[in-house]
Amino acid sequence: KRYRAVYDYSAADEDEVSFQDGDTIVNVQQIDDGWMYGTVERTGDTGMLPANYVEAI
């Protein structure tokens, strides 16, 4: 699945990823209600991200 960031996010922990509004997130997997795991296409960084900061595309 592919998602697009709708807000900027700065990683708060080493297992999270930072991204900017408009970034595409690929290979996304749902972890639980609030978190997903995926790769930021622009940077190649992979990690956890907050589900409410992205939307499906």
Rank of each mutant, 00 (worst) to 15 (best):
K1I: 14
K1N: 12
K1G: 13
R2G: 08
R2N: 09
R2M: 11
R2I: 13
R2F: 08
R2D: 10
R2Y: 11
Y3V: 06
Y3G: 00
Y3R: 03
R4Y: 09
R4Q: 10
A5P: 02
A5N: 01
V6H: 07
V6N: 09
Y7D: 08
D8F: 08
D8E: 10
D8I: 07
D8Y: 07
Y9R: 05
Y9G: 00
Y9E: 00
Y9Q: 02
S10N: 13
S10E: 13
S10Q: 14
S10Y: 13
S10L: 13
A11E: 03
A11D: 02
A11N: 04
A12K: 15
A12F: 09
A12S: 11
A12H: 12
A12M: 14
A12V: 11
A12T: 12
A12D: 07
D13R: 15
D13K: 15
D13T: 15
D13P: 02
D13H: 15
E14I: 12
E14Q: 11
E14K: 12
E14D: 13
E14M: 11
E14A: 13
E14V: 13
E14N: 11
E14R: 10
E14F: 11
D15T: 15
D15S: 15
D15I: 10
E16V: 05
E16A: 07
E16Y: 10
V17E: 00
S18V: 03
S18H: 03
S18R: 02
F19E: 01
F19H: 01
F19M: 06
Q20D: 07
D21K: 15
D21R: 15
D21W: 15
G22Y: 04
G22W: 04
G22H: 04
D23T: 01
D23Q: 01
D23E: 04
I25S: 05
V26A: 07
V26N: 07
V26D: 05
V26F: 10
V26E: 05
V26P: 00
V26C: 09
N27F: 10
N27C: 13
N27Q: 09
N27A: 10
V28H: 04
V28N: 02
V28I: 08
V28Q: 02
V28K: 02
Q29I: 15
Q29S: 13
Q29E: 11
Q30N: 10
Q30K: 11
I31K: 08
I31V: 10
I31R: 10
D32N: 15
D32A: 13
D32C: 13
D33G: 11
D33R: 10
D33K: 11
D33T: 10
D33H: 11
G34D: 15
G34Q: 15
G34S: 13
W35K: 06
W35T: 06
W35F: 06
M36A: 05
M36F: 13
M36P: 00
M36D: 01
Y37A: 04
Y37G: 02
Y37Q: 06
Y37R: 11
G38M: 00
G38W: 03
G38E: 02
G38P: 01
G38I: 03
T39W: 04
T39S: 05
T39Y: 05
T39C: 08
T39K: 07
T39F: 04
V40G: 01
V40N: 08
V40S: 01
V40I: 08
V40E: 01
E41A: 08
E41W: 07
E41D: 06
R42Y: 04
R42I: 04
R42T: 05
T43F: 02
T43E: 01
T43R: 00
T43L: 01
T43Y: 03
G44D: 05
G44L: 05
G44F: 04
G44T: 04
G44N: 07
D45H: 12
D45I: 11
T46R: 12
T46I: 07
T46A: 08
T46G: 04
G47H: 03
G47A: 01
G47R: 00
G47N: 01
G47M: 02
M48T: 07
M48H: 07
M48V: 08
M48P: 01
M48K: 15
L49E: 01
L49V: 11
L49R: 01
L49H: 01
P50W: 07
P50H: 08
P50G: 03
P50C: 07
A51P: 05
A51H: 06
A51K: 09
A51E: 07
A51Y: 08
A51Q: 07
N52V: 11
N52I: 12
Y53I: 06
Y53L: 12
Y53D: 01
V54A: 05
V54P: 01
V54S: 01
V54D: 00
V54H: 02
V54F: 07
E55F: 09
E55M: 12
E55V: 15
A56K: 10
A56V: 13
A56Y: 12
A56F: 13
A56W: 10
A56D: 10
A56N: 09
I57Q: 08
I57Y: 10
I57T: 08
I57G: 05
